[in-house]
Simulated assay, not measured.
Amino acid sequence: MSDIENMDRTDLSKAEDAVKATQSNVENTVEAAKDNIEGKVETAKENLGNTVEAAKDKLQDMPSVEDAIERAKNKLPNVTPIPPSLHAQATAHELKSRLEWGEPALTILDARDRSAYDECHIKGSMLASLEEFEAGNKFNMSSERDIYIYGATDAETATAANILRQAGFSQVAELKGGLADWTSIGGATEGLATQGHSPAASERNVVSRLQEFSQQKAHEKSLQK
């Protein structure tokens, strides 16, 4: 065999080895790439699964549509006021609010003497002197009817209210401040001295009436404490 033939075989063998090495490198690179891709796919799947689970948890924690509406309603201000309820110690604002919002199921009694009543009294009130109470005059009223009573002083008011309660009337309110407090807030009056009466702001517009109502509700809360 000539030297040329030996060189050709040697070169051919080296070429074959180089091809095999290249193939091996390619295969290793492909396998590594496949492993890398598969790992990334698994990681992506895991992250996606965690994201879905987190979203499910948040959805479960979210309130229903009904709950959301109810919460929104509770946050809204009370723009439809209701008349205050009767208190044993009542204010002029309480009585005025009930009358202005059209609540007729109440009676107002004036426990002063007739001359004071004739001079000026709360519009719609009835004269009922202490002497009439003590004589047992129960009037033609239900024992459960709401009654607001006032006298010349808070002490006289309290005395008259206690006589009414002892007579069996269960819904009796002492109008604190009496006629003076009533007129100070522009409450309607009648009698010989009522000419030239200037109506309060609340008698002229709804905004002022709502402001008075808000003040009364604050006072009611203080009475309940």
Rank of each mutant, 00 (worst) to 15 (best):
M1V: 04
M1R: 09
D3Y: 04
I4N: 10
E5C: 07
N6E: 08
T10A: 11
L12D: 10
K14F: 14
E16I: 14
D17G: 11
V19H: 12
K20D: 13
A21I: 08
T22A: 12
S24K: 05
E27T: 09
N28V: 02
K34Q: 10
D35C: 15
D35H: 11
N36P: 02
E38D: 12
G39N: 09
E42L: 14
E42F: 15
A44P: 03
L48R: 04
G49E: 10
V52W: 00
A55C: 04
K58N: 15
Q60G: 03
D61I: 00
S64W: 10
I69N: 11
E70C: 05
R71T: 02
P77D: 11
N78V: 07
T80H: 13
T80A: 07
P83H: 05
S85P: 10
A88G: 10
H93D: 14
H93Y: 07
R98N: 07
E100N: 11
W101R: 13
E103C: 13
E103S: 15
L106Q: 01
R112F: 05
D113W: 00
R114S: 01
R114F: 03
Y117A: 01
D118M: 11
C120V: 15
S125A: 07
A128T: 06
S129F: 08
L130T: 15
F133Y: 02
E134V: 05
E134C: 09
A135C: 05
K138G: 13
R145F: 06
I147G: 00
Y148H: 02
I149E: 00
I149H: 00
I149W: 10
T153S: 14
D154W: 00
T159F: 09
T159M: 05
A167E: 02
A167C: 06
S170C: 15
E174Y: 04
E174P: 09
K176H: 12
G177M: 08
G178L: 01
A180L: 11
D181F: 14
D181K: 14
W182Y: 06
A188R: 06
P199N: 03
S202Y: 12
R204C: 12
R204I: 02
V207A: 04
V207R: 08
R209F: 03
S214N: 12
S214H: 15
Q216W: 10
A218Y: 13
H219F: 12
E220L: 05
